[in-house]
Amino acid sequence: MEIIMIILASILFATAVYNLLQKQFLRIIIGTALLSHGAHLFILTMGKLKRGAPPVLDEGVANYADPLPQALILTSIVISFGVTSLLLVLAYRAYKLNKTDNMEELRGAENE
């Protein structure tokens, strides 16, 4: 199963990079969202899958799934949510100010 998950994560990464390379702001945000999905799946897969019960202590359970990657991913989900929401509002403001959401046109000052 892990092989399939790795391939799936790689597809998520590839589509994420493809979206990051687009011109429209919304596309780029979709790219970051896909990238974090891929990363979360990747972390979980690297911690090995289906090795036991959910990590909630219970009588008579010998094997639990690895809790550490889960804790890491939980933190990461929240952070990427924060970043995504900030980027969305940024896109909104940038569009309102510049009347364009084309990254090729949003190039900053003349003498950069």
Binding site: L26, L44, A53, Q70, I73, L74, I77, V78, S85, L88
Partner: peptide
Amino acid sequence: SAPDLALTQLIVETVTVVLFLLCFYHL
């Protein structure tokens, strides 16, 4: 076997989609 993750992901995904939908109206 990651119940907490599933929960959080579900909520966050929902809120993110709502946010996207809020913003896209202006984009």
